[in-house]
Amino acid sequence: MKILVCISHVPDTTSKINFADNNTKFDINGVQFIIGPYDDYALARAIELKETTGATVTVLNVGLSDTEPTLRKALAIGADDAVRINAEPLDSYFVAFQIADYSKSIGYDVILMGRESIDYNGGVVHSIVGELLGIPSVSPVMKLDIDGNKAKLAREIEGGKEFIEVNLPFVAGCQEPIAEWKIPNMRGIMSARTKPLTVVEPKPVDSGVALQRFELPPPKGSVRMIKADNVPELVNLLKNEAKIL
């Protein structure tokens, strides 16, 4: 079984977000980049499946050369080889198109990724990949077991979950608690240096969208404190000032 795990290279969840070049570029100053947290869950589950079924795990990122340390980290966690599609990940369709195009040339049985990246939060790449390849896509997946040619999944829905069966191949957008995040050990880090990392040039595609600029939300006003012995005052403010109740 061949598993492809697509990972995003995103700012750490604690990053302060700023923009540069007239609000047209993300400001990477002082920002630590990580494997997208949802993608990290997908990767962890793929490594577990590798251990139990003997599957091979390829990890893929659409990004420029600065994302290679992130791919190496995924190799240290246990992926067998890495692919970098050499392009800036401009929008969801562009990224999905590159993933679908590359995976067609290999023929993966399972394609995993996070339910969404934590930079653009589109939550659509898995579904576009599924549609482009003409195979099922399921997201957000919180449980995944594979038995032969069949997979059993649990998908989170509003207020509960759905239990799904699907035959391979399929695409899944993953989230917790599908697996526990894995931290690379020293042996993993050493072996990651020599594992293959292939760079593939992107295919041109028009995704029909163009970024104009970024914006930050207006700064939050200061908090109004209410004394613990004056709870009705809170209700009064919610009713008459916020006009909610």
Partner: peptide, 20 residues
């Protein structure tokens, strides 16, 4: 959890610009 994946697949089918 339903609407967003459906939007993505429809947009891909019909060649639409997609925004979520």
């Amino acid at each position: 959890s339903l609407g967003t994946p459906v939007a993505a697949r429809v947009a891909t089918k019909i060649g639409a610009s997609l925004a979520s």
